[in-house]
Amino acid sequence: MKIKSGYLIREVAGTYLVVAVGKRAKEFGGMINLNETAATLWKELEKGATEEELTARLLEEYEVDEKTAKDNVKDFIKKLSDANLLTGVENK
């Protein structure tokens, strides 16, 4: 799965901001605030990643156990997918 096109992420004074550009900005004119972990996942999802790859990325980057990493990834994907920000989400 992948983040839809037309979004930008940038660190702004210690926090991460996502905004929409171009046509996408007509659907979404606001901003999303992400913490560092979420920003890491977002950047992976910009390139396209599976749930397993995302979990692996968190385990590699942060000192967390596998269950926490998995739960984090699941939560984040659910939020993104509820907000209609993802394409190619597998139905389970």
């Binding site: 930008l8 940038r10 702004v12 901001l17 905004v19 929409a20 550009v21 171009g22 900005a25 007509k26």
Partner: peptide, 12 residues
């Protein structure tokens, strides 16, 4: 504004 370049500038 909505275009990518100026939005990037805005975040900077």
């Amino acid at each position: 504004v909505e275009d990518r370049k100026r939005k990037e500038n805005f975040l900077e």
